[in-house]
Simulated scan of single mutants.
Amino acid sequence: MVAANRARNQRLAAARRAEAQARAEEAIRMFQGQVMPEFRPPAGKLWGVNVKALMVTGPGGGIGTSAAMARVLAPLAAGGRHDETEVAAATGCRDVTDLRERLTGIAGKLAAIGLRVDRRKVGIRIAKAKPTLPTPQAS
């Protein structure tokens, strides 16, 4: 009985992992379809944000974003690490948790243009993404 339950739980966990992997691959394809490769960041910068055009640009091109997200990313475009509480206060976020949720929400778009959010104790910054695209599964 215990072995049967364990096997069933392992099958369910594997099915959940496969479903999550499929969702992640679909999200990557969706965001990659939105990337405009002809847009590049400002000269000498890894990335940039144009608040008026609602565009974030990175090594992989540009991608559109909302006005709220452009306002959150604008202070981070200055380069270097930034204190989360200061960024949250400057961008109109309720608190640091709200800022983290917003940055987590845009992580997929940032990844599509070759960027990632780098959070450490000393502060947050936008950094170049590590190449970690999913590899096709052997059948």
Rank of each mutant, 00 (worst) to 15 (best):
M1R: 12
V2Y: 08
V2F: 11
V2N: 12
A3P: 00
A4T: 11
A4L: 11
A4W: 05
N5T: 10
R6W: 11
A7E: 15
A7C: 01
N9H: 10
A14P: 00
A14L: 10
A15M: 10
A18C: 04
E19Y: 10
E19H: 12
Q21C: 02
A22R: 15
A22K: 13
R23W: 09
E25P: 00
E25N: 12
E26Y: 09
R29Q: 12
M30R: 15
F31K: 08
F31R: 11
Q32G: 09
G33P: 10
Q34Y: 12
M36K: 13
M36H: 11
E38Q: 13
R40S: 14
K45L: 09
K45A: 13
W47D: 08
G48P: 02
G48N: 06
V49D: 01
V49Y: 03
V51G: 00
L54P: 00
L54H: 14
L54V: 00
M55E: 11
V56N: 07
V56R: 08
P59A: 06
P59T: 05
G60I: 01
G60C: 07
G60T: 07
G60D: 02
G61W: 04
G64F: 06
T65M: 07
S66M: 02
S66F: 05
S66W: 07
M69P: 00
M69L: 13
M69T: 09
M69F: 06
M69Q: 08
A70E: 07
A70G: 05
R71K: 13
L73Y: 04
A74F: 11
A74G: 00
L76P: 04
L76V: 05
A77G: 02
G79H: 01
G80T: 03
G80F: 06
G80N: 05
R81N: 04
H82A: 10
E86G: 04
E86N: 10
E86D: 14
V87P: 03
A88G: 08
G92E: 04
G92C: 08
D98K: 06
R100M: 02
R100G: 06
E101M: 13
E101V: 12
R102S: 07
L103W: 05
L103F: 01
T104Q: 13
G105A: 03
G105F: 02
G105S: 04
I106W: 05
A107C: 06
A107Q: 12
K109Q: 15
L110C: 05
A111R: 11
I113N: 06
R116N: 09
V117A: 02
D118L: 07
D118C: 02
D118V: 03
R119C: 08
K121M: 09
V122E: 15
V122A: 15
G123W: 03
I126G: 06
I126F: 01
I126S: 05
A127W: 03
K128C: 08
K128A: 15
A129S: 07
L133C: 01
L133K: 14
P134A: 15
Q137G: 00
Q137L: 15
A138S: 12
A138N: 10
S139T: 13
S139G: 11
